[in-house]
Amino acid sequence: MDAFTTAWAGLTGWIFETLVQPAFYALGLMDWAEDAYDWLDFGLYGLLTIAIVYLVCRPLEAWRPVEPVADRRAIRTDMVYTFLARLGVLPLLAFVLLASLQTRWEGWLTEEGLLPPTLEEIFPPLRAAPLLAFLVYVVVLDFGEYWRHRAQHGLRWWWALHAIHHAQRQMTFWTDDRNHILDDVLAALWFGGIALLIGVPPGQFPFILLVLRLAESMSHANVRLSYGRLGERLVVSPRFHRLHHGELSAGAAGKNYAVLLPVWDWIFGTADWNRDAYPRTGAPGTEEAMATGGWVRQQWAGFRRVALALAGRG
């Protein structure tokens, strides 16, 4: 692993010094160089996670598929979403927005004589255990994600956007990142808002992040896989999440909203533990472009639908 981390640092350093920093220098953007370095690391790590997720999920999908692959074009569209999301184009926009928002928020707080808190200060034992602290952050943020997901289904205008994610009838592990761009921005603001309140540690846990990423992609995989009586209650499984994507579960009638930890559905009464059900996926009632259109058509359909919903005509 040391060899890997050394090689990784060497690779990112080489790309940064050879390509990125000279470009930033030429553009007069050197005060953004450190942010660019972080971003490069994020983007390259995104590529690596795609590769690992593929290597794990693809054989599973070949081994025990829930349904045959009938529409490869629909899967290719999901791939576009994944690469856009993982290579940092969309998160970059959210990052720039959130970074300036965070600066203003913290500046304002300190002007008022306050300092933004961190979880470690509230629970001092977490200081000596960065790994445990990180897991606590994951739990808190996952709780936030559960309620964002509830809102995506419960609010008509938000469902107008989120329906793109659900319209996929050929669900595979690539479907995880299939979201409308506005939905991504809202997600970043929601996540960032919670992060502002509790402080979020820097991404020094690539291995854990990789595991989380793998779990989320796996939950969308086209694989007949349940984690068993206990496992189903610990981590969201392909079975658990496919039920959420079922045709009868679309919109406000949804079940199994959890992103990573099913415990939230358990607590708030939205869990469906039927371990034998692998329903057809899709969102009946949404226009066909949202299901089978390309990235541009789906985005356009989303904009149109959210405008109609907000105007009360959707």
């Binding site: 050394t6 640092a9 990112t12 350093g13 080489w14 940064f16 920093q21 370095y37």
Partner: peptide, 12 residues
Amino acid sequence: GRLWVTLRWIAK
């Protein structure tokens, strides 16, 4: 009298 220098981009 040796210099100990941080190398920002290569973690060394």
